[in-house]
Computed example of a mutant assay.
Amino acid sequence: MDKEIIMNMDANMLLSILNMKLRDEFNTLEDLIKSYDLDRELLTNKLSKSGYIYNVKINQFTQK
């Protein structure tokens, strides 16, 4: 995944991809962010505007 593509992606598509990656490949959001060189604040703000927050207990983005 390319950083620019991720940040310009539709929020619902991004949510689906991130949750799949978190479920299948990464133990934490921090691991995913480091792997793709993403800005955590930009990513979480983008999803927050669409009504999603990161739930560390289940390692997934969920509805607020």
Results as ranks from 00 to 15, higher is better:
Met1Gln: 13
Met1Ser: 15
Asp2Gly: 09
Glu4Gln: 11
Ile6Thr: 08
Ile6Arg: 05
Met7Arg: 04
Asn8Gly: 11
Asp10Leu: 05
Asp10Tyr: 05
Asp10Met: 03
Asp10Thr: 02
Asp10Ile: 01
Asn12Arg: 11
Met13Asn: 13
Leu14Glu: 00
Leu14Asn: 00
Leu15Asn: 10
Leu15Asp: 07
Leu15His: 09
Leu15Phe: 06
Ser16Trp: 00
Ser16Ile: 05
Ile17Thr: 06
Ile17Gly: 02
Leu18His: 07
Leu18Gln: 03
Asn19Val: 02
Met20Ile: 10
Met20Asp: 11
Leu22Ala: 12
Leu22Glu: 10
Asp24Thr: 14
Asp24Trp: 01
Phe26His: 10
Asn27Leu: 05
Thr28Gly: 11
Leu29Gly: 01
Leu29Asn: 03
Glu30Val: 07
Glu30Lys: 11
Asp31Met: 08
Ile33Ala: 08
Ile33His: 08
Ile33Cys: 05
Ile33Ser: 07
Ser35Asp: 15
Ser35Asn: 15
Ser35Cys: 14
Tyr36Gln: 12
Asp37Phe: 02
Asp37Tyr: 01
Leu38Cys: 03
Leu38Thr: 08
Leu38Ala: 07
Leu38Asp: 04
Arg40Thr: 14
Glu41Lys: 14
Leu42Ser: 15
Thr44Phe: 01
Thr44His: 00
Thr44Ser: 02
Asn45Val: 11
Asn45Met: 08
Asn45Gly: 00
Asn45Leu: 06
Lys46Ser: 05
Lys46Pro: 00
Leu47Ala: 03
Ser48Lys: 15
Ser48Leu: 13
Gly51His: 11
Gly51Glu: 09
Gly51Cys: 12
Tyr52Met: 07
Tyr52Ala: 09
Ile53Leu: 06
Ile53Arg: 14
Ile53Pro: 03
Ile53Trp: 02
Ile53Met: 07
Asn55Ile: 05
Asn55Ser: 12
Asn55Thr: 06
Asn55Gln: 08
Val56Lys: 14
Val56Ser: 14
Lys57His: 12
Lys57Ser: 12
Lys57Asn: 12
Ile58Asn: 09
Ile58Leu: 07
Gln60Arg: 15
Gln60Glu: 15
Phe61Arg: 14
Thr62Asp: 13
Thr62Pro: 01
Thr62Arg: 10
Gln63Ser: 13
Gln63Cys: 01
Lys64Leu: 10
Lys64Ser: 06
